[in-house]
Write a protein that binds this DNA or RNA. Sequence first.
DNA 1: AGATTCATTTTTATAGATAATTTTGGATTT
DNA 2: AAATCCAAAATTATCTATAAAAATGAATCT
Lengths: 217, 217
Amino acid sequence: MKNSSTDTTVAGRITRALADRIISGEFAPGTKLRQDHFAEEFGASHVPVREAFRRLEAQGLAVSEPRRGVRVASFDVSEIREVAEMRASLEVLALRHAAPHLTSAILDEAENINREGENAKDVRVWEDANKAFHRIILEPCNMPRLMATIDDLHAASARFLFAGFRMEWEAPTDQDHRAILRALHEHQFDVAAATLARHVKWIGTKPGKNNLNKPAS
Amino acid sequence: MKNSSTDTTVAGRITRALADRIISGEFAPGTKLRQDHFAEEFGASHVPVREAFRRLEAQGLAVSEPRRGVRVASFDVSEIREVAEMRASLEVLALRHAAPHLTSAILDEAENINREGENAKDVRVWEDANKAFHRIILEPCNMPRLMATIDDLHAASARFLFAGFRMEWEAPTDQDHRAILRALHEHQFDVAAATLARHVKWIGTKPGKNNLNKPAS
DNA sequence: AGATTCATTTTTATAGATAATTTTGGATTT
DNA sequence: AAATCCAAAATTATCTATAAAAATGAATCT
């Protein structure tokens, strides 16, 4: 994605795999991540595993205490709020810069992606569509660093989502997404931005009988 | 700072040292960072050096192409603007949350720091004060992830600053900082936020006969 | 003379081994 | 019986060595 090393190098593949498992909730918050374990699992040495740890740390998915190992980052309610607020601020910024470059072709594609999400059978697929929706309307801002930061924040949000809606779940008709597209179509950028901000913050307060801060395994 | 490993481990110390040199401009953009070289310099092996590289990468101070090594991140004008815009958005967010917790003791301390900056003899000292000023009024937002991101952005800004004002330089009386403090004292938070946003964006457009994008060494 | 190919050299990436620190379990003491 | 201290085991952090990949430079061919 932002860095091709994610696909090319062993450290990159390990990073991606571990990030995926943390985000999906397969690894509960607080879980100890042992380097030798993953080195064996991925048929690698522990050196690339350590590099993967450093990256996960930077993404906020793991925390490491020197000489005491790495753990899956815990996320409490305040942290979720924090991520939601940051996303709101930065996605609005991105949208403001992207707006002038949004063609109707892009908006149509966004609508298709949104429909896909609404037809999604499980959270995972819905979240992929959701991510894609936000990405396609923000990407034209042409600000790679901003997009990278938003991606990291989105990953953190997704953790929360998966933690809350593991079992029972139904795809919501995403009224906010539709409203955003409508406003963009009509060049009402302020309306679009305000709706986006509210939408993202709302995600951060979604109920979900949160199994947050599970005890470490 | 956010992670004690920066002081405790070899990898952490290398990270800090390299970040410092990149920010100060000692390493020009595009400079190749050779792991064996730094391993020898710091009396370490290349393993902690690689970990340091991964962190620098995450901070946006270095870029790595798989199998082709790591280079000091180049920053062109658009990237500087990007960082300035991100800082403006996020610092406003932080200030909004910090405002209710700002005591007059904190504001007084901020004023002292500001004065220190105005008396600074070289850019380096001024930048330290500048960073401290922003930090002391934003920190009470109690959002660690937000602060960490702002710190990274501030580092990127500092690179730009040092690149432009290496030689001739005089400490400016920071009128913006004073205006922000005044507004905060009078609980005019919107005014403070607006001034902060303008201030940060202005930093991003400072002239400076930029020796940007120097050829790699 | 210019370009292309092949070998050399440099550099990165991974593996295996070592040192140091923390944690864990048991034994001893109060 | 509970708490504390000491020793063994597990784990992390680092180092040395090896393998793989790419850049460089020279020699040959057109």
